[in-house]
């Protein structure tokens, strides 16, 4: 029972990180209709920024967080401007291959700059955990969960209440019609990438505080799993990304404990295939008619 609760908490912890990354995927997919393969690698860039700012230069925690977010945000927006914007009317295949190219570019640049060895990143979270009815609750879990909840509330308010949020919804619904209504599609897409990448930076910081090591390929697997989470929840749906992320995190940590560590990834990907087979729109996704 105690182990079950601890694993559930671990799963929630991991799942919140997945949910934050999945939000970036799902927002970009909803608005730009593209799978941003490089999204996972932005986490890696965030983690390396954290390594340099926190462990090397000894900046205070709030400065590190700010620096990470700004760098990831700028990186995300510039990737969109340089690589994806010229391809807006191209076939999905072209865009996807470009995104894979960008992802590889980030990975191999990190490999050249930092080397292939994994490096230790000091956790920013200094809060002590406590024990509750014999269940250990770590400081990392408390911070991760509360940060995720706050971000999700803020994001929902942003989408519902602000002009830019409404513009995002409009563009994701129908790009052409939104443009006719006077929505600036280009700046809306840039804003989406900015928000998605900033969320990835936060996710990277939280991921690093729990796992502690960064290498050039750190971002790719959590990135792909977060995409699975986004699909599980229904791509394009923001509550779906949250739900999918948390479910996936719990499933993964349960599979690791009770089935097999080796097969945990296979189970996660198996879920993706099963979901796409029986409910391609995900748990909370809307059905979309295919128009000719």
């Amino acid at each position: 029972m105690q182990q079950l609760c601890e694993q559930l908490l671990n799963g929630l912890n991991l799942g919140s990180v997945y949910a934050l990354i999945a939000l970036g995927y799902t927002m970009v997919y909803g608005i730009a209709k593209m799978l941003n393969f490089a999204h996972g690698d932005i986490i890696m860039v965030g983690a390396y920024t954290l390594l340099l700012s926190g462990s090397r230069f000894g900046l205070p925690w709030w400065a590190s967080v700010l620096l990470c977010t700004v760098i990831c945000c700028v990186l995300g927006v510039s990737i969109e401007k340089i690589a994806y914007k010229p391809l807006r009317s191209s076939s999905p295949l072209t865009v996807l291959i470009t995104a894979i190219g960008v992802s590889y570019f980030l990975q191999s640049s990190a490999l050249l700059i930092f080397g292939s060895n994994k490096q230790k990143v000091d956790s920013l979270i200094k809060i002590k955990g406590f024990t509750f009815y014999g269940i250990n609750i770590s400081g990392e879990s408390i911070v991760t969960l509360s940060v995720t909840i706050i971000i999700m509330i803020l994001l929902t308010l942003f989408i519902k209440k602000t002009k830019m949020g409404k513009a995002m919804l409009a563009v994701s619904e129908d790009k052409g019609a939104a443009q006719l209504m006077g929505v600036n599609v280009n700046s809306t897409i840039s804003a989406t990438f900015a928000i998605g990448s900033s969320l990835a930076a936060v996710a990277g910081i939280l991921y690093m505080s729990s796992y502690g090591f960064v290498g050039p390929y750190t971002g790719s697997l959590p990135g792909i799993k977060a995409f699975v989470a986004a699909v599980l929840g229904g791509i394009g749906s923001i509550p779906g990304a949250m739900l999918g992320g948390i479910l996936l995190g719990i499933i993964e940590s349960m599979a690791k404990t009770y089935i097999s560590t080796d097969l945990a990834d296979a189970i996660v990907f198996g879920i993706l295939i099963v979901v796409l087979l029986f409910r391609p729109t995900g748990l909370l996704g809307k059905k979309r008619m295919e128009k000719v």
Partner: peptide, 22 residues
């Protein structure tokens, strides 16, 4: 060492050049 970097740049450039009107 630069192999993967060159591959990735080649991928991006190929895609951009094949579909950009400019």
């Amino acid at each position: 060492d630069y192999r993967m970097l060159i591959y990735s740049i080649a991928l991006i450039v190929m895609m951009l050049s094949s579909s950009s009107t400019h």
